[in-house]
């Protein structure tokens, strides 16, 4: 982490902004703050931050709307930080282009980890076709996966799932999204297939498949890959 990333915080609650400012500054990030939607859209364009932390319940424009507007041009990570905790709301936000979703109250350690993962994913995509996660190396070009320098035997589907995750590391992928990408539209509600393959994949890539650290389940939403 180079410590020069600018983070735009969009939240109308002073106390939350203050807490975020203290925590994030202490971790070497530069902070910009907006207190409502209109200001946020201007600030995002003016400062072009490396990452945006967005609250959904803003006084003027609904967060989901701001998310859509930002996603028209802003392609860096957006993390939602909101008290809204229904699965529908979270899935909506992810569909609208959010990378990650954290509900308030949150643990700042968790938030920092998500920020790091999100920023790293940007760096990863700009890199070569070889992606590294802990002891796992994925070569998207030669279609090889190595763990601790040993070649893993993956099936075709396992590989396509893994590369989908790897290309979107640090991002929460919804069940729907993954099913559509891998199996096509007809399977968008057949979650059981996804579960079976995720379990198989975990057996191959995780150190301890029953306590996964790479391929993480997001309650009722989907999966996240990476740190």
């Amino acid at each position: 982490m180079n410590g020069n990333e600018k983070i735009l915080i969009i939240d109308d609650e002073l106390q939350i902004r203050r807490l975020l400012e203290i925590t994030l500054s202490a971790n070497g990030y530069k902070i910009i703050q907006s207190v409502n939607g209109k200001e946020a859209l201007v600030d995002a364009a003016t400062y072009n931050p490396s990452l945006i932390i967005l609250d959904l319940g803003l006084p003027d424009i609904d967060g989901q709307e701001i998310l859509k507007k930002l996603r028209e041009w802003f392609n860096k990570p957006i993390i939602i930080l909101s008290v809204r905790d229904s699965e529908e709301e979270i899935i909506n936000a992810l569909d609208n282009g959010a990378n990650d979703y954290l509900t308030k109250p949150f643990r700042s350690g968790e938030l920092l980890a998500r920020i790091r993962a999100a920023i790293r994913s940007i760096e990863n995509t700009s890199d070569t076709a070889i992606l590294t996660f802990e002891s796992l190396t994925i070569d998207l070009q030669s279609h090889t996966v190595k763990k601790n320098n040993e070649l893993l035997k993956l099936t075709a589907t396992e590989f396509s799932i893994l590369s989908l995750f790897a290309k979107n590391s640090g991002r929460v992928l919804t069940h729907q999204f993954i099913l559509k990408e891998i199996w096509g539209h007809g399977y968008s509600s057949q979650t059981q297939y996804l579960r079976v393959f995720v379990a198989q994949l975990r057996k191959k890539i995780e150190d301890n498949p029953s306590k996964p650290t790479l391929l993480i389940t997001e309650s009722g939403i989907g999966y996240r890959f990476g740190e």
Partner: peptide
């Protein structure tokens, strides 16, 4: 128990 149809899913052909 869920209904899971067996799918054809060969191991990847390694170069």
């Amino acid at each position: 128990k869920p209904e899971i149809k067996k799918q054809v899913d060969p191991l990847y052909e390694w170069k």
